[in-house]
Amino acid sequence: MPVPVLETKDLTIRFGGLTAVMDLNIHLDEGELVGLIGPNGAGKTTVFNMLTGVYKPSAGTISFCGELLCSAEHSVPPSQISIKGIARTFQNIRLFKELSVLDNVKIAYHQHVKYGLATSFFHIGKYAAEEKEIEKKAIDLLQLFGLENKKNEQAKNLPYGEQRRLEIARALATRPKLLLLDEPAAGMNPQETQNLMELIRFIREEFDLTILLIEHDMSLVMGVCERIYVLDYGRVIAQGSPAEIRTNPKVIEAYLGSEGIA
């Protein structure tokens, strides 16, 4: 059996008396595109925050490519997790707003920079060649996302849809194995959502990614995900293919009164 890229065992987190996520067991095999859905406040983003080291779990473990990543006893800072190969986007876009589009991507390349601190003081040796390479790679990446003609603009001046795209590009610049997308279609119109769907499929092939995404837009989730976990009150209440989820009575009950399933 192949080793899953991501596996959580009985992952739990409590804030004071409130249990936000309870005994979460999910796994993602290599190359899978999996959705994590659930009503508002179900604990989806909290799961992402645990996976990326922002929150420390109260119990349970997270394994990445067969290796223990973190647990209640062993917490790892977010930067370390990024270096191991998990990248994410944020629900409420967190770009470096005042910086140029190009710099946003270049910053994400930083963890792969090979020249040392002393080299940075004097700009000698490998410096020029490596900076040139970073610039080229960043521009190539922006080209894939159709942003390269805006590379000198401040990130905050991009239209909303392009900011979302830039955030994904920036995450990819860290060269992850696993990409976590937190509501990538939020605030997009149907046409933009359609384009995003194609983009997600495309980057999975292009970058050999495994993707876990949180989404409210059911057309996107149902259209692009191969498997879906449904979270409600911090627990997984259902899992399976989009077709199975669509007809699962528990899921319909959880969503009843909020939003229907397309």
């Binding site: 930067s79 944020f90 967190r94 707003k97 710099d103 930083h110």
Partner: peptide, 21 residues
């Protein structure tokens, strides 16, 4: 340099910088 950009990233958004590694 790239180190300087890392510092600027911290100024702009510490959490985002941290998740960029």
């Amino acid at each position: 340099s790239s180190y300087g950009r890392a510092c600027i990233a911290i100024r702009e958004d510490e959490m985002a910088a941290e998740t960029m590694g």
